[in-house]
Every structure is written in C-alpha cells, then in structure tokens.
Design a protein around this nucleic acid. Structure first.
Lengths: 113, 113
DNA sequence: AGTTATGTATAAGAATCTTATGTATATTTA
DNA sequence: TAAATATACATAAGATTCTTATACATAACT
C-alpha cells in the first residue's frame, strides 16, 4: 500500500466498495482509481492486490470475466450476490471503525469550570 | 483486537494517543480505557498489547516504570521525548488515513442534469 | 533502442494480530 | 469457604495481510 501501516486490513473493503460503485473493474484500473481518489496518497501494490482479488474470488464474493483489449489481457471482476451482501457488512464495519478511531483520538473535550 | 481486520495496524497509534492524553498508563488500564471509549466494540487482547508495548519501548518511544499496587505489579508506560514527536506524526497519518478512506467510501455524489 | 505505461502473477519475508497457555494476587459470588 | 471472576503481566505458535522483488508480455512514448 503505502508507508503507513494503518491501511493494513482495509484493502478488501476498498476493492468491494469500488466494485459496488462501478459495476466491474480490472486490477490495474483499481490501482489507478484509488491513486486518483486519494490524490496519489494511497498506492496499492500488485503484490497486495492480485492475491486479494484471487482470495475474494475463491470466497465466492467476486466473479471474474476475461477480456482481451488491444491485444492485452484484462480480468474484470464484479461482485456476486453474496459479495453484494457482504459489501454492506464491510462498509458498516468500516463506519464503526472510523467512528471508534475518532472517539479515541478526538475525545470530547473535558469540561472546565 | 476484535473481529474486524480493519484495526490491524492501528494499535500503536491508539497506545501513543492515550499516553499523550493521560501522561502514564499501564497495560491493563489501556485495555479497559479503550473498551470504555469504544463502548465495548474494541477489545485489545493481551497477545497484541504487551508485545506492542515492548516494541515501542525498544524503539525508544516509551519509558517504563514499575510500581507495586495492592501487592500486584504494574508497569507504567509514558512517552519519551522522541515518542511525543512521533505521536504527532502518527496522529497526522491517522487523519490522512481516515480522510482517504472516507473519500473512497463516500465519494462526492455525481451531479445529475 | 530504451524507458515508461499497461496488465497480470507469484514467492520470500516482514509485520501485526489471534488464540492458547502460563503465572500470580485480589475480590466477588455461590 | 470454595469457585469463579477481575486484575496484571508474559510469551509462543500460527494466521493474515502486506512489502519487496521478480517474472512475463504488449503498447506507447522519447
């Protein structure tokens, strides 16, 4: 990903959210989209991305469809029905996570008398 | 931690922020504080916490001070000078991380015409 | 002709965490 | 009063996720 360890564990959620939003995407496209959205701050490495895609597919959350464009292979991934349901859960978990982290680092200021 | 993988990588930042806020804390106290703040959602396990504290100490970010209270040992940790500086960086990274994740999952709505 | 961009893949190792286990004392509950 | 729970620290084995490096192949740019 990047230098910060914080992104560890968030890749699956990112992939699934992008697929939910865009219907179908291929690996390289995902890396570029993420780079764009985060203004270059988050760079997903191939070594992290492809194994993650393969695992999500093996778990039945993604379907794959191979296309050949400009004589180059593309593997388009999309959410299965099961994947769509799971995406809802993952996004809900992410919201809880963010809320909890904000509670921890932005505690409500102590009242002074 | 909990069930969600999302917390992976965030433990060090949590520890350092709590120490910045509270001056000094001991391990068990940290687990209870986190449980309280997150309303039971985040439970830090000892297997994660103690190695993390030892590593932060080895890196010179924490100092330790042993006390005996009620005939039971407590190891109080506090930030070193270096640890205070590093905490500022970690919190800044966390803010970037949260911002990026929100950009990814809450994209600005597409304009419709 | 060489570099960069596009496109996928895997393997070795690092880092972080879970789960299980161990030790010890204090307090609460049945 | 015996058993269970809470307090308090520690480590080891294994799982998961990621980084880094390498590999192959085509297209576009310089």
């Amino acid at each position: 990903m990047k230098n910060s360890q914080l992104y560890k564990g968030s890749l699956n959620t990112i992939i699934m959210k992008l697929l939910e939003e865009n219907g179908k995407m291929y690996g390289y496209e995902i890396t570029q989209k993420v780079k764009l959205i985060t203004q270059g701050e988050l760079n997903i490495t191939e070594g992290a991305l492809y194994p993650a895609l393969h695992k999500l597919e093996a778990e039945g959350l993604l379907d794959v469809e191979i296309e050949k464009v400009d004589n180059r292979m593309r593997k388009y991934y999309k959410l299965t029905e099961s994947g769509q349901k799971e995406t809802v859960n993952r996004l809900s978990e992410l919201e809880d996570f963010i809320r909890n982290m904000q509670s921890l680092v932005n505690p409500s200021p102590k009242l002074e008398f």
